[in-house]
Simulated assay, not measured.
Amino acid sequence: MRLLACQTTIPATRNRLDQRDHLDALAGRLRTAASQQRPQLIVLPELSSQEYGEQAFEAMDELDDDLQGPVTAHYCALAQELRCPIAFGVARRSRRADGSLQRHISQVVVDAEGQLAGAYDKLHCAQFGASAEAAHFSPGERLVTLDIAGWRVGFMICYDLRFGELAARYRQLGVDLMVHPVAFTRDFSFTSWHSFVITRAMENQCYWLSLNRAGNGWGHSLLCPPLVTPEASPEVLGEEEALVSWQLERDTLERARKRLPLAGDRRQDIDRLATGPLPSPTVTTASQ
């Protein structure tokens, strides 16, 4: 699979006009990048349709989308034009069963025909460090996997990375590539971000694309292979904007899974094992 990973600069967006200007400018850069090497999947960062921060969150009435609004329409048209699926970030508006409004941090995928293919809502809203999401967003309730160019692709967003049971569930679903858009700035959680990505990729034996926005205090996106060795290391970007074409190889997946046979060696009874101190010694009586 050929990925176009877009660590892109996202300007201040406080209203729909700001957002439209940003989306139009980004579309131009995507057209240029896609014309050089045609991708099979274009990926954008978390909330790539708007600024990440309290001022933008307070202007959500101007910036959100219900999958029938201007942001989704923009990417449907662009995906159809480029003949390539696009995974983009947006604040998704929906209604609860009681009719009240809620919003999610979502990664939406439109296919090469410009049709909606899926929408993953972030399961864990971050409320620590530089993140203050809980006052503005609701957690999602479902996982999303899609078959794209013959690959099983799973989705999670930023803070979701920290929960190993979520990644393990995606492994059970047969994911080959995890698309992990993020908004990591330089708070305390930044230091451990790459370590988590490498661990998750290796323990679940899949490619892992962790894609940040560009700019001072952001950046450093990485693509991690399913097995890190002296010959195969994660590819890491800097802070500046970068639209990078990465080729993923199925042979790399198969070799990693064969070389380190976790699937066959993983015990299925861990949750049933006894706990406690050392077992009592067995006392034997000598025969008389």
Rank of each mutant, 00 (worst) to 15 (best):
R92G: 00
E254R: 14
E240N: 12
E165G: 00
P279C: 06
D147V: 12
Y170Q: 09
S35E: 07
D61V: 09
G264A: 03
P277T: 07
A5S: 09
L243H: 11
V109G: 01
D98T: 09
L47Y: 02
S131V: 07
D121F: 00
A73H: 11
R169Q: 15
Y120P: 01
R20Y: 01
P181A: 06
A130L: 13
E81N: 05
S35N: 06
Q172Y: 06
S287H: 06
A256M: 02
T275V: 14
T72Y: 02
P281T: 07
A59D: 07
T229Y: 04
L211E: 04
A56Q: 07
Y120T: 00
L116M: 10
M156I: 13
L47A: 05
E62C: 11
N212T: 10
E81A: 10
T275R: 11
A274Q: 10
Y159S: 08
R266T: 15
W151K: 04
L161S: 12
L116T: 05
A25E: 09
A112Q: 15
A167D: 03
P261W: 02
A119L: 02
D66I: 00
V90R: 05
V110L: 12
D21M: 12
G238N: 10
L166N: 01
T185F: 12
F184N: 14
W208R: 04
F188C: 07
S192E: 15
S94T: 13
D66V: 03
V283Y: 02
Y207P: 03
E239W: 05
D176V: 08
D271K: 11
D271H: 13
I86S: 06
L17F: 08
K122W: 03
Q115W: 10
D21N: 14
G28K: 06
V71K: 06
L237D: 10
T8W: 01
I198E: 13
C125W: 00
L17D: 13
E235T: 14
Q40I: 02
R272E: 11
A12G: 03
K122E: 13
R213H: 05
L262H: 01
A91L: 05
W208Q: 12
Q80R: 15
T282I: 14
A201S: 14
C84A: 01
V283S: 05
P234D: 08
L273D: 09
S106Y: 04
G150A: 08
P39K: 01
S189F: 08
Y75L: 05
R93T: 12
V228I: 12
T191M: 12
C6I: 04
S280N: 10
R142I: 00
A73N: 14
R171N: 08
E58G: 07
I270S: 09
C125V: 10
F188E: 14
W151L: 12
R186M: 13
S106F: 06
G164L: 05
A242G: 01
Q107D: 03
V175N: 02
E133I: 02
P230S: 08
